[in-house]
């Protein structure tokens, strides 16, 4: 456990040691707010549903930017050798890096609280679904991070890691959208849709905390953390 937190701390230090973290937070907040408020005043409804609606798509670009360097950079610079000569298990290293990614995106999410706060000034806001959506958002982000870190462990090139993660996440998002899953026969379409990262997020966003949705994200996270450990064990570089 100690080793996990030490790795997490080191990763966070890596994010915050450069200006990139602050640029990231600013851009994330500005883009997300712009996409939301652009429509908010036109619709004139006191709701942040659309805010959470665009979130999975904004994450699509921002989370791979966070996770792309996690392993790729260690491999490229050779620090992987130092890391793996330390008395820590592969599991501890993988989980430590995963938690750091989640914590970093979590901070970004925390900063976005200003959006529902501003909206609530314009009229009565139902906070129930907002809180549920934030829980959903952190689960969604965690799943993205697990996938991104795994992809990063397959390459020594950060750009490759970024693009591959973005493409993979994109595919996992669009299978939950109407034009994609509806091309399948109803039953198969329903199954395909259930594998979408977005589908379960929308479900949580309605304010209903269904254990199936939570379980889905935990499974995705567990699976990709496991793949990440396996790819470290393979030492195929």
């Amino acid at each position: 456990m100690n080793n996990i937190l030490t790795v997490t701390r080191k990763e966070l230090l890596g994010y915050f040691n450069s200006a990139i973290a602050y640029i990231f937070f600013t851009l994330f907040l500005v883009i997300l707010s712009f996409l939301f408020f652009r429509l908010f005043f036109l619709q004139g409804i006191v709701s942040v549903n659309d805010f959470f609606g665009v979130m999975p798509w904004v994450f699509l670009i921002f989370v791979p930017a966070v996770t792309m360097k996690s392993w790729a950079e260690e491999r490229k610079s050779g620090t992987m050798e130092v890391l793996l000569s330390l008395p820590a298990s592969d599991l501890e290293l993988v989980v430590g890096k995963f938690l750091a990614g989640v914590a970093f995106v979590g901070v970004a999410l925390l900063l976005t609280l200003i959006v529902p706060a501003l909206v609530s000034l314009t009229g009565p806001l139902d906070w129930g679904p907002v809180i549920a959506s934030y829980l959903g958002a952190i689960l969604l982000a965690a799943a993205y991070v697990a996938i991104g870190n795994f992809v990063s462990s397959l390459t020594a090139n950060q750009i490759t890691a970024f693009l591959f993660t973005a493409v993979l996440l994109f595919l996992l998002l669009i299978i939950g959208t109407e034009p994609v899953f509806s091309v399948f026969p109803t039953l198969i379409g329903e199954v395909v849709r259930n594998f979408s990262l977005n589908y379960h997020f929308q479900s949580i966003g309605r304010g209903v905390l269904d254990s199936r949705d939570i379980l889905f994200y935990l499974t995705v996270i567990g699976l990709f953390v496991y793949y990440n450990i396996k790819s470290l064990e393979a030492r195929s570089w």
């Binding site: 100690n2 030490t6 701390r9 080191k10 230090l13 890596g14 610079s77 050798e81 130092v82 330390l86």
Partner: peptide, 21 residues
């Protein structure tokens, strides 16, 4: 000699010390 180039010497050695328990 791979090192974490963004860290200070103190931060780096503290990290290693912590990992080594």
């Amino acid at each position: 000699n791979p090192l974490y180039q963004d860290m200070t010497v103190d931060e780096y050695l503290s990290f290693i010390a912590a990992m080594r328990g």
